[in-house]
Amino acid sequence: MDYLDALESKSICVIREAYQKFKGRTGMLWSVGKDSTTLLCLVRKAFFGKIPFPVIHIDTGYKFPEMYEFRDRLAKEWGFEVIVARNEEQLACGMGPDQGAKLDCCTELKTNALKQLIDREGFQAILLGIRRDEHGIRAKERYFSPRDSQFQWDYEHQPAELWDQYNSFLNESEHYRVHPILHFTELDIWRYIQREKLPLVDLYLSRQGHRYRSIGCVPCCSPVASPAASIEEIIEELQLTTESERAGRAQDKENLYTMQKLRSLGYM
């Protein structure tokens, strides 16, 4: 078994374990980016071509137009249903990235939009495409990570997780964040996308000397200078770079511990 097969098998086992434990109370977040699109492909493989639970897109209203277009196209092609979650109340009040701190905007339009959806639909497990190599805080995540009703991540008391035994004991109004691709690196993701010929938003590919390495909301993402216009070229580029992937993401920069605060408040 080669390396990508081993990564894939591990992810598929985690996905199946979540579904075995939480069945119809499972959902997955799809940001339309490369990582959660990879996760979507793995879910499809785990269930022999079907996606047995809802695919949730948290829409801040500030995403790239290309992302909305890609979302609707892939959902149609692969035949799955997308639940769009928006914090309408805050959007109506004009919440946005230029309204004060980034922390507040992410919290309202992403975290709280998800919170409202979980309350409404009763999800007990949410699959997410985060990876350990993205950020020092994400490097400390478990595959199954419990969150309380306030969405708090009690990172000082994370349960032990060994030998593929995942904690799934649920206290009242808790839910689990499940991270099936935690062990993939950025380079692994690109190699996997290349091998599986996955469809992708073309914002990742260079146009006029720039491309996005990480995508999210338009005002908070900056492109990086890069000539890489194909997946092969991206893989080559990543083997040489010393810049980190999230260097273009504003929410990581505002304050040293913004990411920890966001995650402990329930950010994805």
């Binding site: 950020h135 020092g136 805080i137 490097a139 400390k140 990172y155 000082e156 040293l256 511990y257 920890q260």
Partner: peptide, 8 residues
């Protein structure tokens, strides 16, 4: 601090 990323 490279690995000890939590503020605590």
């Amino acid at each position: 601090f490279v690995l000890d990323a939590f503020e605590e």
